[in-house]
């Protein structure tokens, strides 16, 4: 589904991502963990064409994405839930969700709306409340629901646990699991390494702009370096 080879991204003279290789197969849930400033968000940004890479190659569903703009990638089945959620504060929940289907013109948008509401009943209760007035957890749910409205094949999630109470994190992760079970391929970026690895089948560990470790989640959870650096043991 997704293949990243030798990705480099520079902000001015500063290298944020220095040669990242990763791949996500169709139907997989893969996580990318690492500390603040490791380059995780930048990697996602490059995949979604929000930042332009200085070198490397990204392939989405067999097609090289170089030269494609972010809105063209959305049409090819890529959805990003941005860091900090990016909920449209002055639009209500329903309008936010409808924005997710912006590029679609088929008749099943209403049906998909029902599906999102079934997955996140809380959003239906708050249907006509503006996005800005929701709690952090509800906003995260809304951001995920909005991304689902585009009928993604590949969903990129950027730190869905950020700034949420533990109970809410649990709920958000359950939702992500449900989405994955529904057949959506997911690349999850997280700082909360334990939760991410418990949810994902495979994981990558990123440090200083490079992938330092990769493997099955169970193996990573057992790895002494991961335990020491990310699980606080």
């Amino acid at each position: 589904m997704l293949e990243v080879r030798g990705l480099h991204v520079h902000y001015g003279g500063i290298a944020a991502v220095k040669g990242v290789d990763l791949e996500v197969a169709s139907g997989e849930l893969v996580c990318l963990i690492g500390a603040n400033g490791a380059g995780k968000t930048t990697t996602l940004g490059a995949i979604a064409a929000l930042v332009s890479p200085s070198a490397g190659e990204i392939t989405l569903g067999g097609e090289r994405t170089a030269g494609l703009a972010s809105f063209q990638l959305v049409r090819r089945g890529l959805a990003l839930v941005p860091e900090g959620r990016g909920v449209f504060g002055r639009l209500n929940v329903r309008e936010n969700l409808e924005m997710g289907a912006y590029h679609r013109s088929d008749r099943e948008i209403g049906h998909d709306l029902e599906k999102v509401f079934a997955l996140m009943p809380r959003l239906q209760e708050r249907c006509y409340q503006t996005g800005g007035t929701l709690s952090g957890g509800e906003q995260q749910m809304l951001a995920i629901g909005r991304a689902l409205m585009s009928r993604p094949k590949l969903l990129l999630l950027d730190e869905p646990s950020m700034g949420l109470a533990p109970l809410m994190v649990q709920k958000v992760f359950e939702t992500i699991q449900a989405v994955a079970r529904d057949g959506v391929t997911i690349l999850l970026v997280e700082q909360n390494a334990r939760l991410a690895l418990e949810l994902a089948g495979r994981g990558y560990v990123m440090e200083g702009g490079c992938i330092t470790l990769a493997g099955q989640s169970a193996a990573l959870l057992a790895d002494s370096r991961v335990r020491e650096a990310y699980l606080g043991e």
Binding site: A48, P82, G86, A147
Partner: peptide, 11 residues
């Protein structure tokens, strides 16, 4: 409201 999110919506 949010330009990055707008891009991610396919705008």
């Amino acid at each position: 409201e949010d330009e990055v999110a707008a891009k991610a919506m396919g705008i």
